[in-house]
Write a protein that binds this DNA or RNA. Structure first.
Lengths: 278, 278
DNA sequence: ATTGGGTGTGAACCAGCTGTTAACGGGGGC
DNA sequence: GCCCCCGTTAACAGCTGGTTCACACCCAAT
């Protein structure tokens, strides 16, 4: 289902001063000119998009926010809003239009818009509202990309987009690394397939897409090749995957299990990770 | 009967959407009256707060959003905004004021407001904007954020789609887990078969479908296998099921009073509590 | 007591999920 | 331009578990 051809660069690393990638769908040249002037040199990466652009084409752009005037859309604005919202749940949507009614604004906000600005408007306010939406969306995102992370035998280094075992690189590709990172950040929690796809690929998973499975397999292969004796990724049938390092040594987990209640110690869920078993 | 077997797609299963908890700081009685009328019966829990309320006191209220007019604040509005924003990063902040300038709005949005509405405004638009802000805030946090839940001897962990007794997994399948979760969330209340089906399966139950019964049976088996001596799921003939942990020990229930129930209170043999049908 | 419908129970079926492998094709580096 | 890398997609096999069926049992009403 690869709509995304290339454009794999713009990555989210430091949430802080990451430039905002803004898509603009508007035809008012005066408005565009003034806005462009304001955006220049403010750390924005913006791109003016044609009015007839299908939502699917937005996928590859890795936008943070979309500013658009519904009157320049060729397709039904409400339908467009809904489709963009469901396809790209991580995208902030700001509508900017002249002569809107309360009912229109309410409807727009209900079907997925994050804000609705009335024209004419000051470019400074547009920028402030775009940033508020993006900030709101980024808030609560991944904590600390900065620090390396050690789980089990492996070390994950965001500064190099790579993982290591005893200093030896796993030689992960970009997708493999991102998948590993998303999984590892949620250590111990089950992540649904769709959520995983959403986090790594950036847009909604198409029905029947097997990419996640294939990459989990690749990841497992590289993890096992470099760190045998450990199991990291556990399958939860019908749900998704869970990352949790487990030593395969017959030596029990590093918990003092001499206790009279052996199971009381959280044996990490003997959940059938259909890999092991007999 | 049911539609195709798998069908795990969409279906967010957030059937029980939490009400929005909204704090309001305003003194315009007319505005408050109209807004209150709109909020009533829409699943809102709102609370009008005094203008001089210190941000620290908001912490305990577990609000989702705060709607306020800066002109009624005794303290410096900008300072208030910043402190609330840093103190409660998960709170949506909507400013609603009359006679604001572009500069004020920009400043407000910069220091932490998520939206800024100009008075006079339609209550419907206020609600729509509040919901947009809350929606944006909630998105991304899956159901896993809900903390674990302990009922009787069992612990339900949404982060693992699994239930445990003393650390031992019940090894529930996805459907079984979801059924348990829906039942447990309505602890003590009877849920009709159709409502149960609707919640878990996501669509209407076909006439004659026995899926609910079968899954209740599977659930009971696993509950009883792992937590014998307790009864969790009670049948209400002709209606549905009720989840309520009951110890089968002759030792009195942990309830203080001796329950002067006229009808056979928990007869230890009868598997079903036809109970207080009245 | 009889009866009709609702519910418990066990088992079988098979749609769909996952693991696995390999071919395809675009992009970037050389 | 050529080659290699890597993400995508398809195909196949094994297995899980959701659905369905059949029958026994229980409840409530006549």
């Amino acid at each position: 289902m690869g709509i995304a051809g290339g454009l794999y660069h713009g990555h989210r690393m430091s949430v802080r001063r990451d430039p905002i990638r803004l898509g603009i769908v508007d035809s008012d040249s005066g408005f565009l000119k003034v806005l462009a002037k304001r955006l220049e040199g403010s750390g924005y990466e913006y791109r003016v998009l044609p009015g007839g652009i299908p939502p699917e084409e937005l996928v590859a752009s890795k936008l943070n926010a979309l500013l658009f005037d519904p009157t320049v859309l060729r397709s039904d604005p409400w339908d467009f809003l809904e489709r963009v919202g469901s396809l790209l749940p991580g995208l902030g949507i700001i509508v900017c239009s002249a002569n809107s009614t309360v009912a229109q604004r309410v409807r727009g906000l209900r079907v997925g818009a994050d804000d609705w600005i009335a024209k004419p408007c000051h470019p400074e306010e547009v920028v402030a509202r775009v940033e508020a939406v993006v900030r709101r969306h980024r808030r609560g995102r991944s904590t600390a990309d900065a620090g390396p992370m050690v789980v089990g035998e492996i070390e994950i280094r965001p500064d190099r987009f790579q993982a290591y075992v005893a200093g030896r690189s796993l030689e992960l590709t970009r997708r493999e690394y991102e998948l590993l990172q998303v999984l590892a950040e949620a250590e111990g929690r089950v992540i649904e397939r769709e959520a995983l796809y959403q986090s790594v690929w950036g847009y909604a998973m198409a029905h029947g897409d097997r990419s996640v499975d294939v990459f989990v397999r690749k990841l497992r292969a590289k993890l096992n090749r470099t760190s045998p004796g450990w199991e990291y990724i556990h399958t939860h049938f019908g749900i998704g995957y869970r990352f949790e390092p487990e030593s395969l040594d017959k030596a029990a987990v590093p918990v003092a299990d001499a206790e009279p209640e052996p199971d009381a110690a959280r044996s990490p869920d003997s959940n059938r990770s259909l890999s092991s078993h007999a």
